[in-house]
Amino acid sequence: MRRLLVAAFVALGQPAAAQGIAIPFAPPTDRALIYRIEQHRPVEGATRMFSATRDMRFERAGEGYILQVTLRDIDSDAPAAGAEPYRAALTPLIGVVLRFRLDGQGRIVGLDNVDAAWGAAQAGIDAMLANFAPDTPRHKAAANVKALFASLSPDGRLALLAGEVQPLFLFAGSSVAGGEGRGLRTVAGSPLGRPVPVEGTLRVVGQPADALDLEEKLAGAGVQVGIHYRLSRTSGLVETQQRSLAVGSLALTESRMLTPVK
């Protein structure tokens, strides 16, 4: 459940000629959405697929919004050693409804049903521990997830549960620099096993109707990261995101897509 990048960007100095493009936050409240994440990364010498599909719906709540998220399913073609930690972390959340509270600028500020959601996740882990023998990969992975859950503070629980939807709101309620873009500094994480500082630029590379195409290029010690965003200028949401991370001979790619239910 660790993120490819720590999503904390720091401006390194915006060119004087760059003009800011205002990004709203006005998510659609009249439709159901599907959010699919698919990742391809090396496991035991081969590239393996990991995917998760979530059902989503926004509703207005005072000056902000409620985002209802339900993990529908997960999948992986990795062998047990690579797939079980992923399945153990996410299987307990399948079917659990999460009701995130967002302010008017697209910041996640709480989870309305945090006790019920957390209880359901813990019950799912306990069921996995009871149904699999202690010497099996799934039991061991579930035990590790249970220990992680037990170590988290309330803020840590919210951050964990919100982690996979947070990238939708990277630019909501802010502005994006035009012209030469702006400099960024962040930290590349998984699958490195250690944080590596990276720096680069974020710039606008296209302006199709009602959208912006953004390109982010980052580099650090032996690390290359590239990210392409399709950002809605109507809703302020990141509708598609394509990421690649290269560390020596290791390569990871990830795609995220938010689409209306047809």
Rank of each mutant, 00 (worst) to 15 (best):
M1W: 10
M1F: 07
R2P: 03
R3Y: 06
R3M: 14
R3I: 01
A7H: 14
V10Y: 10
V10N: 15
Q14M: 12
P15D: 05
A18V: 04
Q19F: 00
A22K: 03
A26L: 09
P27S: 12
T29D: 12
T29G: 12
A32N: 14
Y35W: 13
E38S: 07
E38I: 02
E38V: 10
H40Y: 08
R41H: 13
V43L: 09
G45D: 07
G45I: 00
T47Q: 15
F50D: 06
S51L: 05
A52T: 03
F58T: 05
R60T: 13
G62A: 01
G62R: 12
E63C: 02
Y65N: 06
Q68M: 06
T70E: 14
T70P: 00
L71G: 04
I74P: 01
G82W: 03
A88Y: 04
T91Q: 10
I94K: 15
G95M: 11
V97W: 04
F100A: 05
R101D: 13
L102M: 02
Q105L: 10
I108E: 09
V109P: 00
V109L: 11
G110E: 08
D112H: 04
A120L: 11
M128Q: 03
L129M: 11
L129Q: 01
A130E: 07
F132A: 00
P134T: 04
R138N: 09
R138W: 03
A142L: 05
N144A: 15
A147P: 09
L148G: 06
A150L: 11
S151H: 14
S151W: 10
L152R: 03
S153E: 11
S153D: 13
P154V: 02
P154E: 04
A162M: 13
G163K: 07
E164Q: 08
Q166G: 10
L168C: 02
F169E: 07
F171I: 07
G173H: 08
S174F: 03
V176N: 01
G179A: 13
G181A: 10
V198H: 07
E199F: 04
T201K: 01
T201A: 12
T201F: 11
L202V: 09
A209P: 12
A209F: 14
A209H: 15
L214I: 07
L214F: 08
E216I: 00
L218A: 00
Q224V: 11
I227D: 02
H228T: 15
Y229Q: 00
T234G: 08
V238M: 05
V238P: 04
E239F: 05
T240P: 13
Q241L: 09
S244N: 03
S244R: 14
L245G: 02
L245R: 04
G248P: 01
M257A: 15
T259E: 11
K262C: 00
